[in-house]
Structures are given as C-alpha cells and as structure tokens.
C-alpha cells in the first residue's frame, strides 16, 4: 500500500514537473495571469470604489457573488457540524454526576444524580476531568479578551485601507470567544454567547450580505451593485460603493465569527454542551 501510494505520488509529481517547463518564471511581470483581468482592477479600483486595498474592493464589490456563496458555504459547514454532533438531553451512560469545587478550601464535591446542588458563591462547578484552580490564566485572559475584540472590530472596519476585512476580523472575534471558553469553561462561555445566539448571528450574517444585494435590486440597480444605494446613504455613487463594501464585510464578519464559535462548541463537547476542552 505504501509503495503504491509513493509510486502514484511520485508519478503525479513528475508529470507536473514536466508541465512546469512551459510555465512563466517566478515573478514574471508579463505572465498570462497578470496581463488580462487584473490590470483593469488595479487601475480602476481606487477610482470606482474609493477603497485603496484592491483585494477588499475585488472581494466585496467586483466578485461579490463569489464571496456571498463562500459565506454560505461557511454557514452550511457550521450547520452540518450542528446536525451531526448535537445531542439534546442527558447522557444516559454517564448520568448527570456534577462536580463542584469549594473555592476557599479547594475541596472537590461530587453530587450524585438527584442530589442537592449547593447554592452559594463559594462553590464553582468544574468539569469531570480535574482541572487545577488557575487564577493567573483566568485573570490574564479576562484582561486581554477586550483588546482582542477591539482589534477584531478594527480589522473589519479598516479593511478598506489595510490588510483585513470581514473574514479575518470575524475569525479574530470568534477566536476571542474560543479563548474565553478554553480559559474559563464551556458553560460560562455558553452563558456569554449561547448556542441560539451563535446560530442566529450566523444566519444573520449571510442575510445581511444577501439583503444588501437585494436592496440594490429594489433600488433599481443590479444585484450587489452598491452604487444603487447612493440615495439611501445620501452620498455619490463612488462613496456608496465604499459603504456597501463595509456593510457586506460586517455581514461576513458576523457569519464567520459565529460559525467558528458554533463549530468549536459542538466539537469540543461532543454535542452535549456540558463539558468542554
């Protein structure tokens, strides 16, 4: 089996290597990829959309259809994880035995099914796999998470002028929630951003994107041609395209953020949403 795999990989590689003899050299400014569509984008993007970052302009404006359905793919991947893994209700093989830690002394209590749950702020529920009481990690992440989220918002909003945009900012925002879930525990993270919230945000992101396109249709322009939104924003057509890119990036950021969080919740807890990583 290994020999067959090695032989087929080598054969495939050799055929491709012979093919590269016809390819343009690395960094050739006159290569076919650089001489047909892209000069039009580079020369006109700034004048037509008022977005200095050409990648953002092409991503959200010229090739908006492409990005709309990429966002839909992310949404449906999150839905697939939910439908495959999520199990509602209690685990019948391991009934709901709950572990609590008494914070002042560090003693761990085990409550059997049907037992009375201690109702006092001195008790903290912990996961079945014993985790040491870790003040430094909890406090440091608590301090750093607001700055991560602020940076994520900056990346979304400043995507016109610097590298960044909805995809990157959304992933950073999602990573901050995942960091919270890892450093505290899954139940606290679910308390901050629940499952229904992430599901609704994920769908709302795709809806904002598609809705912006449909609004353009209603205003008499083509689908996803943001210059039709100019009367709504009260600016000229070029500025309207710039603002339309921002609206779309916010939708993408929302969808990607909640998709990442949703996939993590289901994967880390095997769909039970009780004990995480």
């Amino acid at each position: 089996m290994k020999l067959v795999a090695l032989a087929s990989a080598l054969l495939c590689g050799t055929i491709l290597l012979f093919g590269t003899a016809e390819f343009p050299d690395f960094g050739d400014p006159d290569s076919p990829a650089a001489s047909h569509v892209s000069p039009r984008y580079i020369e006109e993007a700034m004048a037509e959309t008022s977005a200095p970052n050409i990648v953002t302009a092409v991503l959200a404006d010229y090739r908006g259809f492409d990005t709309l359905f990429e966002t839909a793919v992310v949404f449906s991947a999150a839905m697939a994880c939910f439908f495959l893994l999520r199990i509602f209700g209690e685990d019948e093989r391991r009934p709901s035995e709950k572990l609590y830690r008494h914070l002042p002394t560090g003693i761990t209590l085990r409550i059997d099914p049907g037992g009375k749950v201690p109702d006092s702020p001195e008790f903290e529920r912990i996961d079945g796999i014993w985790i040491p009481h870790d003040v430094i990690v909890k406090t440091t992440t608590r301090l750093i998470i607001p700055f991560i989220q602020l940076f994520g918002l900056y990346v979304i909003a400043h995507g016109h002028h610097s590298p960044g945009g909805g995809f990157q900012g959304g992933v950073i925002l999602g990573a901050s929630v995942i960091l919270y879930a890892i450093s505290q525990n899954l139940r606290q993270a679910l308390g901050r951003m629940g499952e229904a919230v992430s599901a609704v945000f994920c769908a709302a992101g795709v809806f904002i994107y598609a809705g912006a396109g449909a609004l353009c249709l209603l205003m008499g322009a083509n689908f996803l041609d943001y210059s039709g939104l100019a009367p709504l924003f009260g600016v000229d057509a070029i500025q309207a395209r710039s603002l339309g890119i921002l609206v779309v990036e916010i939708g993408v950021g929302l969808a990607v953020m909640s998709a990442m969080v949703w996939i993590y919740y289901n994967l880390a807890s095997m769909g039970r949403h009780q004990e995480g990583l």
Binding site: P29, A33, A34, I42, E43, E44, D66, V73, A77
Partner: peptide, 28 residues
C-alpha cells in the same frame, strides 16, 4: 491613476483568501 506594473496581481489573493476560510470550515 495607478499603473498595473507597480502592484502585485490582486486576483489570486482574493480567490485564495476565501479558499482558506472555506478550508477551515471543511476541516471542522
């Protein structure tokens, strides 16, 4: 205006940027 020879071709970047995000979704 901008000259096309002064800037790297942005089109493959756009295509691959979305491909990376889709790849993490398929990884999930």
């Amino acid at each position: 205006g901008a000259r096309a020879a002064d800037y790297i071709n942005p089109l493959p970047h756009v295509l691959m940027l979305t491909a990376i995000v889709v790849s993490v979704a398929t990884l999930g």
